[in-house]
Amino acid sequence: MELSLNVNNEEWALDVAPADVLLDVLRERVGTKSPKIGCERGDCGSCTILIDGRSVRSCLVLAVEAEGHEITTVEGIGADHLSELQNLFISNNSFQCGFCAPGIVLSATELLARNPSPSRHDVQEALSGNLCRCTGYEPIIEAVLAAGERNEEVSA
């Protein structure tokens, strides 16, 4: 069936099967490889994308359900220049292997859009669906908190 997808502000016209999973379509048909395959059952969060700004596990969504919505991946977030948050992730040594990073960037981006100066608990909650086996989370949480503090300074 015909499907039109908006991925990082680009329009795609694709021919897909009704049962095709959005994660697979993004990776194999659109060529957007930052959403990763970690478990394919909604447990790990490495396939996280934003749909209309809300974080979604793309392994649990059918491609056809995304029609008419705006999909954003980490390639879209940092297309022109890295976001403040991405820079903080680099300077805080927030990631090691980096496999979880695209999903975590998106979950944290969504959080900061909703709640510009989150508490530690807010950050932990927003990231609780994104597993990271390498870092022990602390350097990730600290970077998101630092981004929140900068937001506060800007708005003060």
């Binding site: 490889k33 980490v74 890295l82 680099i90 040594n93 496999f99």
Partner: peptide
Amino acid sequence: TPAVRIDGLDKISGAAQFVDDLD
């Protein structure tokens, strides 16, 4: 020194390729 990791940009921008990402 706490030099910034040289693979940081690859990993944070989505550019880093893992085996499953190769075409």
